[in-house]
């Protein structure tokens, strides 16, 4: 849905803007979060129906972090997402159709079937395609920010990092470099409590990963990553600061991966109690209630939006399922830029 279409549905008078977000902004955030959830649930059922090529890695529970943080960016800014950030891609401008084609490995998709998952980049909307070696994109995002600094273009980069990634050497190299050079880049750790099956207690010994920011001499902030408004507020602060040339920041979003590492993983290593606790903190429910309480979005209009989303997702996948797979010989093309 377009911003204008969404605005039509908003009841303005009863809402006081928070964190610089208007009622329309809040409804738009809801749209992207619900779109992400709907899209991902469709992937989960496709996986079970054998329609997917390869694994499916979902960001359920992560929607507020991806969407809220990315919503702070301008069109020209740089986004370096990770594999649980479908919402971030959407907010940055990737189309549903492109995303469906990509995840189904179709010829028309952004990688033309050459790479899987959320590995695509898009020069037009300035998203950088991630690689599976987590941590590698930390310095790549810094490099994009370095280009901005050299060109004095005022662009800011956001990069999402998982909690597991914070253990790899590239994390140190990248954050140190970005800080030494005072680059306009904001790092957001999506701390969803587990790296595959490894709990945080085995991943790091400090209380918060964000504590490490102090060692790099950059701000380190812990945020409730299930609250999109809070996520937006903190990120907005860091992005503006970076845009002013005051250097990078490290934001740790506390959230929960509500499904397995991938759809083949039942995540039974997560204690039932922990899962139940986080189920009460579903980011979409939180925003839903918030919008209802403020009277911005009635259940009726919200359901209208949900239906519209269902139909958009349906259409995107219908198209993608019918779209041709790449021709075999295409495998030989595109290794080098000409």
């Amino acid at each position: 849905m377009t911003q204008a279409e969404l605005s039509e549905l908003v009841k303005r008078s009863e809402f006081t803007p928070v964190a610089g977000l208007s009622a329309e902004d809040c409804v738009t955030l809801y749209y992207y979060m619900q779109l992400t959830r709907t899209f991902e649930m469709r992937l989960a059922s496709f996986y079970r129906q054998g329609k997917m090529v390869g694994g499916v890695y979902l960001g359920t529970g992560n929607e507020a972090t991806s969407v809220g943080a990315t919503y702070t960016l301008e069109d020209r800014d740089i986004l370096a997402p990770t594999h649980r950030d479908i919402g971030a891609h959407f907010v940055k401008g990737e189309s549903l159709r492109a995303m469906a084609l990509q995840l189904l490995g179709r010829a028309e998709g952004p990688t033309g079937g050459k790479d899987n998952g959320l590995h695509q980049g898009n020069k037009e909307i300035n998203t950088l395609g991630m690689i599976s070696h987590l941590g590698a994109m930390i310095s790549v995002a810094a490099g994009a920010a370095l280009a901005s600094k050299i060109k004095k273009s005022g662009q800011v980069a956001i990069h999402f990092i998982g909690d597991g990634t914070s253990s790899i050497g590239d994390f140190h190299e990248g954050l140190n470099f970005a800080s030494v050079m005072e680059l306009p880049v904001v790092y957001i750790i999506e701390n969803n409590q587990y790296a595959y099956s490894t709990p945080n207690s085995k991943q790091y010994a400090c209380d918060w990963i964000a504590q490490r920011a102090h060692g790099f001499d950059m701000p380190g902030i812990v945020v409730d990553g299930t609250d999109v408004v809070e996520m937006y507020r903190v990120t907005k602060w860091a992005v503006e600061r970076a845009r002013r040339g005051e250097g990078p920041a490290l934001i740790e979003s506390q959230t929960m991966r509500m499904r397995g590492h991938s759809e083949h993983d039942s995540a039974d290593y997560v204690p039932q109690k922990v899962m139940e606790k986080w189920e009460d903190k579903d980011p979409i429910d939180i925003l839903k209630n918030y919008l209802r309480d403020w009277g911005v979005l009635t259940d009726v209009t919200r359901e209208q939006i949900d239906e519209q989303i269902e139909s958009e997702v349906e259409k995107a996948f219908e198209y993608a399922l019918d779209a041709p797979v790449p021709e075999g010989p295409e495998a030989a093309n595109g290794v080098y830029a000409r």
Binding site: G121, A147, E173
Partner: peptide
Amino acid sequence: AIFGMSIGAALQ
């Protein structure tokens, strides 16, 4: 990081 930075800048 030297290479990562180079890649990021090259992509811009």
